[in-house]
């Protein structure tokens, strides 16, 4: 074994070891690396109830209601398995829409309503012209199928 082969082997073994270590660390920290909890995780008691946390899901269609002051909004975040009522007072991002993903930061109140301090819109990875979107919409209406799941809205797991 020439010295340079030794050095190469050392680097490759080192990298492999580093890869294993990184995998283990990232696995151990998995729950801390998630940006938000899903409604199912909240229902299962995984979310910290006494602290501020992020809740992510799809905004249920037909659930967005505006209060009389014009600023308070209530809506339902869902992952198609569990629903959470969210109340937010403030300005919503432009992409916030029913049927789209959203991530809310706030606290859960005693009666199970999520009081949000901040709401962010999550968009999907699809890019297309409006005409194509319209055509797809019409095709979907004439042939009702299951709603397409938005990428990683469910934390990578199947609902």
């Amino acid at each position: 074994m020439k010295p340079r082969h030794k050095r190469l082997a050392f680097i490759l073994i080192g990298l492999a070891g580093l890869g294993v270590a990184a995998t283990l660390v990232l696995n151990a920290l998995k729950s801390n690396l998630q940006l938000f909890y899903s409604p199912s995780e909240l229902a299962a008691g995984a979310a910290p109830k006494e602290r501020t946390f992020r809740l992510g899901g799809l905004v249920e269609e037909g659930s967005v209601k505006r209060g009389n002051d014009g600023l308070t909004v209530s809506f339902v975040l869902t992952d198609r398995a569990e629903n959470v009522n969210v109340v937010f007072k403030g300005i919503l991002p432009d992409l916030f829409k029913e049927g789209q993903g959203a991530v809310a930061l706030g606290k859960i109140s005693d009666d199970g309503v999520f009081m949000a301090d901040e709401v962010l819109a999550k968009h999907d990875e699809t890019y297309m012209p409006p005409e194509v979107a319209k055509a797809l919409e019409q095709a979907k209406k004439s042939q009702p199928a299951a709603a397409a799941p938005i990428n990683n809205m469910n934390g990578g797991r199947d609902i």
Partner: peptide
């Protein structure tokens, strides 16, 4: 893919 993020897939 591994974690849920605000950034889309």
């Amino acid at each position: 893919e591994w974690w849920n993020t605000l950034h889309q897939g």
